[in-house]
Computed example of a mutant assay.
Amino acid sequence: MTSNTSSSVSEFVLQCEIKPEQRSFAVSILTLIYFVTLFGNLLVTLIIRMNRHLQTPMYIYIGTLAVVDLLNSTNIIPKMVAVLLDSVTISYGPCLLQMYLMIYLGIVESLLFVCMACDRYTAVLHPLRYSSLITNKIVWLSLTLSNVISVVGLTPVMVFITELVFCKSNVLPYCFCDYITIIHVSCTQNPKYFTVLAASASLFGYFPLAIILFSYLRIAQAALNISSVDGRSKVLSTCLTHLLVMSLFYLPLIIPYILTGSGVNLLSREAYNIMVVISTVVPPMMNPIIYSFRNREIKSTIYKTVNGVLAFFTSSSR
């Protein structure tokens, strides 16, 4: 370990706890995940942007989710790959920036899921008032508000991090810069740092999740009362799609953060690391795949676009 006796550090040393013989495999998997994430999210964003029929509230939210996933993956995966390839140091400023972006984008995504749940709730339970209640202007206002709330929620973390003193080590036993890991390696073990984590996880984890579950429970109840089989199937299919995406985000993330923030150490460091990494790199890859295959409009638009491109190249080659 690298000792550091001063009150500040100029860089951190990242240590991924992966066996040397498994590193090549991990690099290959992460690289594949990143390129699939890039392709999928860029495709969904472009499809929604290019098709006027898809520039409606629900699809604006889906497109925004694709952008957030793209930014989050780009913030995390390239550095993880670099660390596994033995580029283990990261300057103090970029390390904190990576941590801030991860927390900020995580809060934005959580609030975005709430907005999507409210959008579907209004569409199913108040269909006649939907067009007047959920307009594109309201959507952009909700997205702006989500960003403002995320900045406010990030402020305590930014303040507390600047208070930390690193008198023991500048080695982070992790693949990227993480709030909990930075707190653990500091010599300022004040309970308030974990209290703010638990409060933030509850405010932006439990509370949004409760709203989402309530919304989709009411949607499912309303769907069961729809007399049309096709209509009921469409509503339930939409619910399932959104719930799949949200489960991928919430389940692996809430458990380690809230348990750790509450002072409950039921997870080993390895288990904690695995859950956080999974919650960070897997959902951005899976979200566009789920939406592409389960959403008829997006799937249809992709097919039309691909067929149009193929027809263009076919005619050009003749």
Rank of each mutant, 00 (worst) to 15 (best):
T45V: 08
L46M: 13
L46A: 07
L46T: 05
I47K: 07
I47Q: 06
I48M: 03
I48G: 01
I48C: 02
R49I: 13
M50Q: 15
M50I: 12
M50A: 15
M50Y: 14
N51H: 12
R52S: 14
R52G: 13
R52L: 05
R52T: 01
H53T: 13
H53A: 15
L54F: 10
L54D: 08
Q55N: 14
Q55Y: 12
Q55H: 08
Q55E: 05
Q55P: 00
T56Q: 07
T56M: 05
M58A: 11
M58E: 11
Y59M: 09
Y59V: 10
Y61G: 11
I62P: 01
G63S: 04
T64K: 13
T64R: 02
L65V: 06
L65D: 00
L65R: 06
V68S: 00
D69I: 00
L70C: 12
L70M: 11
L71F: 09
N72P: 03
T74Q: 08
T74G: 06
I76E: 03
I76W: 02
I76F: 08
I77V: 04
P78L: 08
P78T: 11
P78H: 02
A82F: 12
L84H: 11
L84Q: 13
L85E: 15
L85I: 04
L85G: 09
D86H: 14
S87W: 15
S87F: 12
V88F: 02
V88S: 13
T89H: 02
T89L: 13
T89D: 08
I90T: 12
I90P: 01
S91G: 11
Y92H: 15
G93Y: 05
G93A: 15
P94V: 04
P94H: 05
P94R: 05
C95W: 02
L96Y: 14
L96S: 02
L96Q: 10
L96C: 11
L97V: 14
L97C: 11
L97I: 15
M99L: 15
Y100V: 12
Y100E: 04
Y100W: 11
Y100R: 02
Y100L: 09
L101D: 03
M102D: 06
M102W: 12
I103L: 05
L105M: 08
L105W: 01
L105Q: 03
G106V: 02
I107Y: 00
I107T: 04
E109H: 00
S110G: 11
S110W: 00
S110L: 03
L112Y: 03
L112V: 06
V114W: 04
V114G: 04
V114L: 14
M116D: 02
M116S: 06
A117Q: 01
C118G: 10
C118P: 00
C118N: 11
R120F: 01
R120Q: 09
Y121Q: 01
T122L: 05
T122F: 03
T122C: 06
A123W: 08
V124E: 00
V124G: 02
L125W: 00
L125M: 13
L125G: 03
H126S: 10
H126D: 09
H126E: 09
P127M: 09
P127E: 00
L128I: 05
L128D: 15
R129E: 12
Y130V: 05
S131Q: 10
S132A: 08
S132F: 13
S132Q: 14
L133C: 09
L133Y: 15
L133A: 09
I134Y: 05
K137C: 08
I138G: 04
V139E: 04
W140P: 00
W140A: 07
L141Y: 04
S142N: 07
L143V: 03
L143N: 01
L143M: 06
